[in-house]
Design a protein around this nucleic acid. Sequence first.
RNA 1: GCCCCCGUAGCUCAGUGGACAGAGCAGGAGCCUUCUAAGCUCUUGGUCGAGGGUUCGAAUCCUUCCGGGGGCACCA
Length: 584
Amino acid sequence: MSLRSELSRRFGDAFAALGLDRSYGEVVVSQRPDLAQYQVNGALAAAKSAGRPPREIAEAVVERVAGDDVAELSVAGPGFINITVADETLARHVAALADEVGSARSEPSRRILIDYGGPNISKALHAGHLRSAIIGDALKRLFRVLGHDVVGDIHLGDWGMPIGQLIVALELRRPDLPYFDPEYTGPYPDEPPVDIDELSELYPWIVRRCRDDAELADRARRATLELQRGREGYVALWRHFLTVSLAAQRRDFDALGIDFDLWYGESTVRDRLEPMVERLVAAGVAVESEGALIVEVAEPDDAKEVPPLLLTRSDGSYLYTTTDLATVELRAEEGYDVVLYVVDHRQSLHLEQVFRAARKAGIAPPDMVLEHVAFGTLNGPDGRPFKTREGGVLLLSDLIALVEDAARRRLEDADLAQDYPEEERERIAHQVGIAALKFGDLANHRLSSYVFDLDRFTSFEGKTGPYLQYGAVRMKSILRKAEERELRPGPILAPEVDRERALMLTLVELPDVLARAAELRAPNHVADLAYRLAGDFNRFYEACHVLREEDPKRQASWLGLVETTLRSTTLLLDLLGIEVPERM
RNA sequence: GCCCCCGUAGCUCAGUGGACAGAGCAGGAGCCUUCUAAGCUCUUGGUCGAGGGUUCGAAUCCUUCCGGGGGCACCA
């Protein structure tokens, strides 16, 4: 149990003994580190219902709680209880940290599916795809560390209008290909007719043309319908698009260090669509409106207007609402307790509609959690979604190259790097660049739309991913040198120096922060702790020269502290998807 | 028009109903014969968009207004 929850339990007991709700005893990290390490504010809140002055309650609580493991307890101001724990207690919790992380989970183990990434297969990944992938991956790692059974699903956009548009685009360019000939009965060529570059160029081109040309847009809709009805040439072409696109996207996700357990997509549920729609119609859940099928999802007690969900187009073709609903059905059958949709906040209404329809139609059981983990957009310096100077989108692969270049330059400026083998320099540049990218994103709260600033992502000083790696590298270096001198980490002693104590206090926050980050689905809390830990370590490093320490027991203790800090930092960085090099 | 999100230091952003609102960058002053200076120390900088309310206590909850972004049926 974490130090904070252990203290909370004791203060809760004390409040309970006074006939007050034990939740008043919640201990929090002090807002005033100059006064105390922890504080309890419950006496103030309890005063009214107890009919006693807050200070009196606080005094009574303090009297009951006093013990060896608490060094200082005092009542301050209007009724705050200030707590300073005994150094021995602190050291004991640092030593037990590894066990406490495992018990940070606040709920029973659940089967969780995280839907993230979600790229459309009609184009290469660009900067706009970054957030869902990074945030979803971090949440997957977090829930997994907390002991849940977690599955990540990329949920490809591969069965909707974009494919129909691509089919039409290719037909306009290369009408001679056999895929478009209704008379042709196959077999179709094994080689894809396009590569990823052509695909990436084709898609924006056709989207623009469809926007200006209603007839062409209609043709794309028809192609979509025919694909969904199984027209062979189109299906063959779709497979090619999928192959070409996935190969490129896999490369980009690999470079980011992001993987998926399931590479499902809209098309995964294509055989479910027709029966599901028929069932919804038969059940009276889906009704005809203006030629299309809709599901009314408004509830009588809605504070807001919730428009109906559009289930099918009037030509009978399917939209992403259809595939999303069928995907809920698939996930329900596969027995997930919780499904987290890590999707852009602009889709909140859509997901709300899908979730409601799934409940209404009995597709999702009542106890299955469907939750939209929304995030803000990545904007350029002008406050609008990020574009390159030329006005195009920035490809993810180019973005990765940019941060790697910056890391390589920084490495070349450092004296140490000259004797690093070429291969290691490249690996470090990659790890550092990715760290800058991921930390730069994850340090922000997911809901805020933040400004993408290349200078910020390529400067590695201050609150950045590389700063965290640098701290960890320093820890590794100390431990490596200690090893060479046959110095071993020993039992962690009570801290004597302020900066040592400060480091320990931050360390023991770990289980609480993980629990909170999971509860809020907010990886920035993980990022924040990692940053504070690195800062505390760097200050400890300046003040306490581990390898030169003369007292062997103190030195062994410090080595243990460094080792624990490294383990914690590595864990936190791993949760953020950031690797730590051996040196940098 | 209705709904959602946002508004915090010059810039980019944190902030769990609690005490004196934080960090990084930028600006100023220092620290490398010492475990990696991608580091550390000190410092300048704020009517938390504005008003009202709830509360012992509000950046945080409610409400009105102002400003910005987004969404609202055949795109995803």
